[in-house]
Amino acid sequence: MKAYLRAVLTLARKDALLERKSLETVTATASFTLLVAVLFHFAFDIRSAEGARFFPGALWIAVLFAGTIGMARSARIDEVEGRGRGPALAPVDRSALFLGKFLFHLVLMLLVEGVAVPVFIAAFALRGVALPHLFIAGLVLGTWGFVALGTLLAGATSGERSTGLLLPLVLFPLLTPVALGGVAIVTAAVTGDVTPATGTWLRLLLVFDVLFTAVPALLYESVLEV
């Protein structure tokens, strides 16, 4: 068990090291999120009174699109010269390869959100978030499920010439619960208007997260082999 966890961390650290050398993925992902904030403003000409209404959806759209681009790129890095096969030769269960990648993507996305959220709050003229804990819980739970499924599907589509096109097409339909739940929870957190449904959303996201971390870990090996 200890050896397994060490392998997961080693794999995630390797990806972080690769990322630190170029900072390409994190820069592209973060600036994409910020661009969405600006585009939303252009598209809907948001005044301060409507800010709270558009904020949750805009934030999630930015996160989902930027994250998809980031994960597609990160998966392609492993595809260069078939080097993703190197770790597959190591004496660790191949589910560790999935969890390592997942962990790296999760940390990356949370960092990007750390930058994006203050900017979105400013851009949508929010006076702050009524329930910060709920806000963070919703963001983390939603990102977790998104990144877990995204890591599986990005890894599986990375061999394709049309990765960039295929990934959102296969990923977004499956993310319906994350999109709906994420928006509902963030809305409740921003307005402070918590209903019994908010709790149900949190539980639903948790179920989604656990399910789609466990199932891909089991299935990852079959999309790895050549």
Binding site: V80, G82, R85, G86
Partner: peptide, 15 residues
Amino acid sequence: ELGVVLHEPLLYREL
């Protein structure tokens, strides 16, 4: 207990 050299070097060029 297995050591493998494939046609691809399985190394990270950036590192």
